[in-house]
Write a protein that binds this DNA or RNA. Structure first.
Lengths: 245, 245
DNA sequence: GAGTGGTCTAGACCACAGA
DNA sequence: CTGTGGTCTAGACCACTCT
């Protein structure tokens, strides 16, 4: 027990430490890319031993909230292009090499009231407004993904077609750098659907062509959903990968 | 340093301990469901401190190799029906409730030489033989999944249609209990395909209906691939879930 | 009460990065 | 050289389970 976390409670100390650190990261007191104070410094500040801080930080490292580098320090995780792609983009070629989206064309970006699905998925108020972004992404030089991205208008003040086409592929870097929103975790729901007339046209295929539909809800580190994304993908010569451990 | 793990090397002690324990599990010296010796007993045997054993076991617990229960002990993980379904079966209804396969009909089980794909996926010898199991699984009372399962004949000596229909759904429990093979980890590759004539017939749909094809390669705890499985699923009112952390 | 894992501490030493 | 995280130890006490 110690002076900061107060009286008798049955929450382990390292959990309190972990949540304190997590809080500072999610409020932005410690920003992506920044180095945290050393283990002993945090321990001194919070009145716990270095070993307890270590356990707290190990937990956060296991959840990819921080990154530890021996000899250098502990850093708040950030969305490099590499992380965004390797961590969040799960399509690869049938030869099991990572397939990278090469190009992306935003053909629509508009603001409107959220519909019921969007309100549910993003936990919005009834009259909340959203930004709807539609784009086609290419892989290996061919249109491959027809994608609709929905974000709450309240969080993404000035986002527009031009902003988006300047930063073509890595939306999550844009979110982090321009809007201070770090996507930390996502749930993807995957279905097989037939291409609609619109999708068929965008992807240069016949209506009814089987497409992989990936619906993603992305959350920040404190669990707020901040993006709903539906991607319809051609999976000729490609597939979606998931590892079960 | 200590007497068992010998001279100067730069492998951390806890890694040696972890690998020793893992070895005993994968050779079957410690079997699924059994309790391991206590941390201090393992420490004494291997000549390391209890804290080092703890770190090794924590690692294994994080990988689901062992399960720790406070006050009881540390146990080798096993395939309960619950674990098989919740951990390895990733289809749920659109209401986000876990969809359970209710029934399963094996309509073919034969032995033959492995083809090239199978040799690659299961890392078999050129002339190895496999067992090919074909079945249809129902969900909510309707045929929903057309599945082909390939396992190396060498590992599954007497498997046949009757064995399979006696243990309808949970193959992994069967593998573990009858053949001493524990599936630990799997990679799934997911595509959208159109139903073939055969799949269409089995699932009661028209040829060309979009199906979700899930190709799974399952491994034991020591990384040997032991099963190749291709499931073609109807995803009307259902979807495949994957969480990215 | 005895035995298990879970938390917490304090301190020693190692490995790595960078000035 | 200093400061960082990484490993390892020894020992105290807590929380849970079972008898």
């Amino acid at each position: 027990m110690n002076e900061l976390f107060g009286q008798r409670n049955h929450t382990p100390l390292y959990v309190e430490v972990r949540d304190t650190v997590l809080g500072r990261i999610s409020t932005g007191a410690w920003k992506p890319g920044e180095m945290l104070p050393s283990e002993s410094a945090i321990g001194q500040e919070l009145g716990v031993s270095q070993g307890t801080v270590r356990k707290a930080l190990d937990d956060l490292a296991a959840q990819n909230v921080v990154v530890r580098r021996q000899g250098k320090g502990t850093f708040v995780a950030e969305h490099t292009a590499e992380r965004a792609l390797f961590h969040f983009f799960h399509i690869e070629t049938n030869a099991n090499t990572r397939a990278l989206p090469t190009n992306s064309q935003v053909y629509s970006c508009r603001r409107r009231k959220a519909d019921k699905t969007e309100i549910d998925a993003l936990k919005l108020d009834r009259d909340a407004r959203i930004v709807e972004i539609k784009r086609v992404r290419e892989m290996a030089g061919e249109p491959a993904i027809s994608e609709t991205v929905i974000v709450p208008a309240a969080l993404f003040a000035d986002i527009d077609k031009r902003t988006l086409n300047d930063v073509p592929n890595e939306l999550y870097q844009l979110y982090e750098q321009k809007y201070g929103i770090t996507v930390h975790r996502a749930v993807e729901r995957v279905r097989a659907v037939g291409a609609s007339d619109i999708d068929a046209k965008l992807l240069g295929k016949k209506p009814g062509t089987p497409l992989l539909e990936i619906e993603r809800i992305a959350e920040t580190v404190d669990g707020r959903p901040v993006e709903l994304r539906v991607s319809r993908c051609l999976t000729e010569g490609r597939h979606y990968v998931s590892t079960i451990v």
